[in-house]
Computed example of a mutant assay.
Amino acid sequence: MVTGANWHSGNAAKDGQDTRGWILGHFIDPAEGVRHSTDVEVKWFNHPAGDKRAEWTTDDQRTTLLLLISGHFRLDLTTQSVTLTEQGDYVLWGPGIDHSWEALEDTTIMTVRWPSGERSPA
């Protein structure tokens, strides 16, 4: 990891170890510099096969992009279910859509969510 006055270089898997995979967002200590943001959150996560979110999110008022890096991943939305199978497959959903998910095999995903935090978008 290398950090400068207004920049950072690191490894997503390592940098997110203590924050459930999140490497950028409002919950990153401001002492981490540019990794602290109230505008956007970024997560990199390796899910083992069978890993799943049993409970559904509820009433999230942010926009989310989930991007498949590798593996096989099912995302269940209140509107429909989507299975990501090819590198680069993604799902984008907006405020008010609840979700749950399951890794159908060992899977790496990147999630981008905005704005960062529990506030409603302007």
Rank of each mutant, 00 (worst) to 15 (best):
D89K: 02
T58E: 11
H47R: 10
P95F: 01
E41T: 11
H72Y: 13
K14G: 06
R62Y: 13
S9F: 12
D98H: 06
G33E: 04
R119W: 01
D76C: 06
T19Y: 04
E118Q: 02
E86C: 05
S100A: 14
R113M: 15
Q17E: 15
R74W: 04
V42F: 07
H8L: 04
S116F: 09
N11Y: 05
K52R: 14
G33F: 08
R35E: 03
Y90V: 05
S70G: 09
H47P: 02
E105R: 13
D15A: 15
G117H: 12
A31C: 03
Q61S: 09
E105K: 10
L67G: 00
S116I: 02
A5I: 13
A49I: 12
D18Q: 14
G10H: 10
V42A: 15
G96V: 07
G33W: 01
T78N: 12
L24A: 13
N11E: 09
L77R: 00
W101I: 00
D106E: 13
W93D: 08
L67C: 10
V34L: 11
S37P: 14
T64H: 14
S81P: 03
T83M: 01
W93V: 00
W44Q: 05
A13M: 14
T58H: 14
D60V: 15
W101K: 01
W44I: 07
H36N: 14
W93T: 00
T57Q: 09
W56N: 14
T107R: 04
P95I: 11
L77H: 01
R35M: 07
